[in-house]
Design a protein around this nucleic acid. Sequence first.
DNA 1: TTTAAGTCTATAAACAATATAGACATTGAG
DNA 2: CTCAATGTCTATATTGTTTATAGACTTAAA
Lengths: 134, 134
Amino acid sequence: MRLSRKSEYALLALVDLSRQYGKEPSKIMDVSKRNDIPKKYLEQIFLQLKGAGYVRSFRGANGGYALAKPPEEITLAQIIRLIEGPLASVGSASIYYFEHTPIEQNKKLLQVFKEIRNVVSEKLEGKTLSDFID
Amino acid sequence: MRLSRKSEYALLALVDLSRQYGKEPSKIMDVSKRNDIPKKYLEQIFLQLKGAGYVRSFRGANGGYALAKPPEEITLAQIIRLIEGPLASVGSASIYYFEHTPIEQNKKLLQVFKEIRNVVSEKLEGKTLSDFID
DNA sequence: TTTAAGTCTATAAACAATATAGACATTGAG
DNA sequence: CTCAATGTCTATATTGTTTATAGACTTAAA
């Protein structure tokens, strides 16, 4: 499970919104500056997060973005699955995104990557955005 | 730590050589056929493994490839680090391949990925080629 | 009506993954 | 000595992904 820059940005942006949860929405520009994320790229990331129901947007002047649910209800696993796809190292060890890959030819080898998938999954399912507000 | 096709091929090919350890070297063509790996791609993979000292080659007629050391002495971690680079999900959580990335801005977030790196590393350091001979 | 926001879609630049091609070098067998 | 089988080396092709950037459009508040 290699994280792209996009996922790093998404996590930072969501933690930023978590700090404002219950308050006024945050403007893309402000989130961009505070976390050093390219503004136009962040726009796309927020649109994706919105499509998946993790954030809400408010258009027009005084608009901005806010979390769509409490920080306690959004896990790292959910966000990373959204942006990256499978948590597993190989497609054939993935549950949500299973696909056939060559390593299936060796059952024991595949088993190692399933075990890794499981521990990674547990770690990420167990952490929510609320755990990362300073 | 997302595995490329190349790593899957490398692991399958090495396990194949492990089965022949102590016997005659295996020809690229045979390893290719047995594991369904494109021959010309496998050539490149073996050259890389040879450069890193995991396999030896014998040229000319009756040539082929063999493990350069006992299967017990080659770990999955070594091979994956060779082919993929860092085991860590993010560069800033990597020890051997550290680099600065945005997620460092949030120490707690970074810590999660360091923990994941550690468990993945332990799993892969703890398994050698000998564990995968049927 | 103006202005400050978010929306949507296209595209570009750079890089990585996954091979394929072909000329070359080495070795053993006959 | 020559031929065939094998590994070596380097270049290139193809495709996809990542990481953005651009610009025209829509919405809402003042």
